[in-house]
């Protein structure tokens, strides 16, 4: 592809789209964290009226496609008189979608905390809430970060789907520029490069969190 040159005029609209993509990603990531904790803890609950809805949420969102969910909320909900707007629909659906995968990460990491930790906490008479909050979650959190990084990258990739429900994100702007300039290769290579850069930012950020969080207490090569 030696004929590819990057046209500087392409940049301003792309950066506008980039801003929208970052907004949707940030909003959805926030929704995802809350949904992941709620869903993951809910699925571990001993009470079936908490466990059943949590399980339903996780299975439905993991069992269907992000795009199908997006279309459903965008096209079908208005038939029920619920109009939430494209932006809110995008943030909510992508957040809940990523949250359902996150919930399984939360659940798996909590179950991976050794049983002896909970027993020690019981022997010290900590309440169930204190056991979870002070003993189990801090240890589980360290194990959650690497898989959560992957889920966040998948979320970033899924933000491109909002271009199909009329939101002017990075991919949408790219499509518009392509249609008007017909410089397909340049535009899409730029898009791919921008998404790749965003992914690398996310990875670096998460690695820093992991380091800062667990450097002191986690021996090299995992827990003993």
């Amino acid at each position: 592809m030696s004929g590819v040159t990057i046209d500087l005029e392409l940049l301003p609209p792309l950066f506008k789209g980039l801003t929208v993509t970052i907004q949707i990603f940030s909003g959805a990531a926030g929704v995802a964290v809350v949904a992941a904790l709620g869903g993951g803890l809910g699925r571990l609950s001993g009470r079936c009226w908490i466990r059943a809805p949590a399980t339903c949420y996780i299975e439905v969102f993991r069992g269907t496609s992000a795009l199908v969910q997006l279309y459903w909320v965008f096209y079908v909900l208005p038939f029920f008189g619920i109009e939430i707007g494209a932006m809110a629909a995008g943030i909510l659906v992508l957040g809940l979608n990523a949250g359902s995968y996150g919930a399984e990460i939360v659940r798996g990491s909590i179950l991976a905390v050794p049983r002896g930790q909970i027993e020690a906490a019981i022997a010290l008479n900590l309440t169930p809430f204190q056991r979870m909050w002070r003993i189990v979650l801090p240890q589980a959190a360290a194990a959650m970060i690497p898989p959560a990084t992957n889920t966040l990258i998948e979320l970033l990739k899924n933000t491109s789907l909002v271009s199909l429900i009329t939101i002017a994100d990075l991919t949408f702007q790219g499509q518009i520029i392509r249609a008007s300039t017909l410089k397909s290769a340049e535009v899409f290579l730029l898009l791919l490069a921008l998404y790749l850069a965003l992914s690398m930012v996310i990875r670096t950020f998460m690695r820093r969190i992991e380091k800062r969080y667990s450097l002191s207490w986690r021996p090299v090569g995992g827990l003993t």
Partner: peptide
């Protein structure tokens, strides 16, 4: 690494619009 870090949709567009040229 690059394939895993970028959206499938953009990759689809890339192939769809760029390959014919």
């Amino acid at each position: 690494e690059a394939i895993r870090s970028t959206p499938l949709l953009v990759q689809v567009y890339f192939l769809f619009y760029v390959l014919p040229s």
